[in-house]
Every structure is written in C-alpha cells, then in structure tokens.
Nucleic acid binder design. Sequence first.
DNA 1: CGAACAATTGAATCCTTTCAAAGGGAGTGG
DNA 2: CCACTCCCTTTGAAAGGATTCAATTGTTCG
Lengths: 201, 201
Amino acid sequence: MIATTALSSSNHSRIQVLRVVKNGPVYIEGDDAMHWYAVAEGIVRSCRFDADGNRQVIGLHFAGDVFGMDAGVRLDTAEAVIDAKVWCLPHEPDAEVTAAHFGKALWKALSRVRDTQTLLGRRSADERLGAFLLMLMRRTDEQEGFDIPMNRHDIADYLGLCYHTVSRTMIQLCKEGLIEMEGPSRCRIIGLERLQTLAGE
Amino acid sequence: MIATTALSSSNHSRIQVLRVVKNGPVYIEGDDAMHWYAVAEGIVRSCRFDADGNRQVIGLHFAGDVFGMDAGVRLDTAEAVIDAKVWCLPHEPDAEVTAAHFGKALWKALSRVRDTQTLLGRRSADERLGAFLLMLMRRTDEQEGFDIPMNRHDIADYLGLCYHTVSRTMIQLCKEGLIEMEGPSRCRIIGLERLQTLAGE
DNA sequence: CGAACAATTGAATCCTTTCAAAGGGAGTGG
DNA sequence: CCACTCCCTTTGAAAGGATTCAATTGTTCG
C-alpha cells in the first residue's frame, strides 16, 4: 500500500521528474517545502486531516496545474489520485526571480481554489455534484463521456459530503436524465444545459 | 444606500487611496480589473451571487491583506464590511516585474483562501463558527474580548449557513461556556482550548 | 473460491433550513 | 420626549436533506 516513487533527472537543469503510484504521497504535512510541483500526467489531490481523522480534499490538480506552493513547512498532504508524473520545481522562498517565475502559477492556483470554494458554500449535494461533473468533463475534454478517475470517497471528501450521499445523488442525476453512467466510473452528460443550471452557471 | 467613494492620490507614485463606506463597493463583478487592492483600514468582503440571488462571501480581507487579484475581468464583487480605506495597486497583468512584486501577496492570499476552504468542508455549524471566532480574535488581537464587525447575515454567507443558524449556534456556544457575549457584537472567548478543539486545531 | 475493497441500498436520526413571528435597538419626525 | 419605523436578532415549529448505522451487492485480485 505504500507507494514506490521513482526519481529520475531530466535534461533540464534542476528540474526533476517524480513518478507517484496511485494513492502514493508526493509530500506529507509537516515536511519541509523543498519544491513546488507541477502535474505532468495524472491527478494529484491536496488534503488535510482534522483531529477526528476525517480527510478533506482541498484541491484536485490535473495535468498542467501547479501545486504545493508552500513556504517553509507543508500545510497539507499531496497524494496521487491515479498514477501520476509530476515535475519538481526548485524554489527559493524569498528570491524575486522565483516570484516572477511562478507568479502566474500562483494566480492560476488562486483562481482554482476560489472556484472550489464556490462548490462548498451552502449548496446542496446535487448542485455540488453537478458542478463537479462539469468540471471533470472540461478538464478531460473528451466528447463521448469521460472517466471519473476517483472513487466515491474521494469525491465526497472533495465536495464536503459523505460517500453515501455522492452515490445516491449520482443515481438521482441519472434518473432525472441529466447524466448516464456505464459502471460507477464512466459518465456521460445528457442534459448539459440543465446540469449547468443546476450547478449555477 | 449607494456608497460615496472619495479618491485621493498619495505621495507614492501611482498608488491611490480609496475610501469606501460600509457596504459600499470597491469593485463589481464584470468590471475591468484595473488594480489590485490592499486593505489599509477596515474590512472588505469578496462575494459572488448565484442565479437565485444568494450571496456567497468567498473571502474576508483585513488590514494588510491584498485582494482583487484578478486578471482581465472581475470574477467577484468586493464591498466594505465596515468603513474601509484601501490602496489601489497598479498592475500590468503580464509584466514579470508585477509578478515579482506581488508574488508574496499572491502566496498569502492563497494560504488564506485555503484556510477558508477548511471552514467549509463537511463541518457542522458550531465547528465553523468556532473557527470563525478564533480567526476574528486573532485578526483583531484584542485581549479583553473583541468586536464582531459584521452582522449575522454576513457571517452566515461567509460560513455557508443561514443567519438563523448563526444566531442559534452563537447562543449555544454561550450556554456551553465557550464564549460570552455583550450584545450581539461584543464577544469574549472563555474556553479557548475547548473552542480550539471544537474548531479542529 | 475467498478476501478485500468499492458501491449501493434501507431505515432512523440528527442537523440545518425554511417559514412565520416576535423582541430589541437606533434613528427620525412629530 | 414619545411614537413610529426600520433593521437586525432572536425564537418557535415544521419540513427537508444529509449523515449515520447497518447490511447487501458487486468487483478485483491473489
């Protein structure tokens, strides 16, 4: 169950490539923040654990996304949702060159986090799930349906729900003709406009 | 009810000072993003409105906080929670110098937004309110209690609750001896440790 | 096949929201 | 100074929705 992570250096100076198996850690809360990261392939989640051991997924990072922009100590844990390849970006916390280099990445990350927040504020389960599925569809830009590359538990922890509710709501969306499922992880959006309305777009 | 905003230039080049009365707008969703802002005095909220007209406060900005880091078009609306003074920071979206200058501000904003997110993910009303009060206490760093500088409605929209629940939960925290209230807006934390436990710290 | 994990389903409980109404304080005008 | 209004807060009761607990079904993989 522990992930094996293979490290290999690329031809770019100081940029390393890290391969992380499904559910394996990229870094762990409390670690020294040696690098920032960018997703090359796969999906990475950032999460925190509260006193009761409940996990909260505070971010999902897809190919192209930069994550782990901590200074000093890691405030969250990053794990691969599916097998992933990430770039390790060296950074000197106070160097202006770093800020210049990553300013845009920071800005993008900020935008994404704010969108995530919109998912969580006084919204019902179907609204959250609708917005989530739309986001997934767009991130994977497949036309003929798309895979949901994580289990119900992951989705629940991301949307602030319990996984039973995710399951029930998913089925409800099917019954209402908004989506179609082929197995638990293959999804196709039927009623795009209605789903967008539901998600508040 | 419309805010009057007085503009005056400071002795710093290109930095302007904006005064905004309580509930007055700093900028509005859809505006061109001409500046970034920093709070000099007072409190500013960033919010979005969904199709039903429900407001969601996605951020509270206190003295020293930078906000409004949009590029292009405003994706949210910023309003003064109480009378506020803000600095208008010019920025050129793609200039590296800007990124270097504001990289740290972006990073701080990112940290704050992630903390806000932690408030919202599958947490009960008392946990959210507990964390909120602790945050307020720290931001105002008064020892002998502190003012809650916004009404129940603002708090509710920030915590993703309805204002009735905020009211009820506040009273419940009093009954449990975690806090003391003098009127609706003056608060003192009695059981700091228990409140921290409740808030998941 | 058995084991472990993931997803679904059912029933009961708990919490928050919703709807409705009553207090309470600040400010205005007579 | 009092009556009145407005807004914010509190309170009550009912309804709705998500969670919790418990159990079943389905899948994957040794």
